[in-house]
Write a protein that binds this DNA or RNA. Structure first.
Lengths: 152, 152
DNA sequence: TATTGTTATACTCTATAACTATA
DNA sequence: TATAGTTATAGAGTATAACAATA
């Protein structure tokens, strides 16, 4: 296997490890990845319309109804009226939901710190910059590919 | 957000981009990630028992039955008798399945090369080594955590 | 008695389509 | 007429339990 492939495989592998661990923790809290995604969005931005949440998650509005139902039932979120549009609903986190998100953010910070324990600032900066370059290059490649699709 | 967190987020983000792209390609071939995982295992190791595939994928044997059924129906794999155990079945890739796996491996190589276009060998080696260190450290942390769970 | 695979069944995640209330 | 959300329904992915054939 080429060195380039090894690098890409390492990224995928590491990401898989971290995600699997997170999902295991969430499962213990009876939270699926989708439900958690809704909570991150609302925690980050404050009360949001279900429509907006669906757009950001690239999921159907109908499905957001289900996810919010689940969160409300678990006491993590609640629906409130929209101040100017009586059709719409604003999803907010309950106190319990907010505190859960804060705990998760803290754990995320601690994990990141523990993983890079002993690294120099220069190492962290270099690897981060390289990964940014990869993501940037990836976006360019995808844009090229879809332009070709369009032309074909 | 701390630099450490940024680094971890970059890894997760990049992995997400690559996986989403792969899934889109697979979808066009009517291949789900699970079905593809079965094919990778059989392509890498040669004919395997469904039992072994289930263990490696960490999935129920019953579910492997479904996945292999789908692959057989698509003409990508076939079941053959086990030479010494008449209960068991050996899953093999058809010619079509093998050639599909080879195409995918080639695309994977090309993507890795394109992403690191212009990088020096030293850069590739350094970033790979750092990611290996992260994965190693992650495994240690997880082992510690599960030891604590056991003690609790 | 233990193991390989399968039939039967059910639960979760997600989608499409039709509908209600409001804009 | 268009939009926000919901009811109804369906399909994919995966699990558990019971059972067959074989070890």
């Amino acid at each position: 296997m080429s060195r380039q492939q090894q690098l890409l495989d390492r990224i995928l592998h590491l990401s898989h490890l971290v995600q699997a661990d997170q999902e295991r923790e969430l499962e213990a809290l009876d939270l699926t990845p989708s439900r958690t995604a809704v909570m991150w969005i609302v925690h980050r931005d404050g009360p949001r319309m279900q429509r907006d949440i669906a757009a950001e998650m690239d999921v159907t509005p109908r499905h957001v109804t289900t996810l919010v139902d689940d969160l409300v039932e678990a006491g993590l979120a609640y629906r409130g009226p929209h101040p100017s549009d009586r059709r719409a609903v604003l999803v907010s986190l309950s106190e319990k939901g907010t505190s859960l998100m804060e705990t998760m953010a803290l754990q995320h910070r601690e994990l990141a710190d523990a993983l890079t324990d002993g690294w120099s600032d220069a190492d962290i900066a270099l690897v981060t910059a390289r990964l940014d370059a990869l993501a940037e290059r990836f976006s360019v490649l995808m844009a090229d590919a879809s332009r070709e699709d369009g032309a074909a």
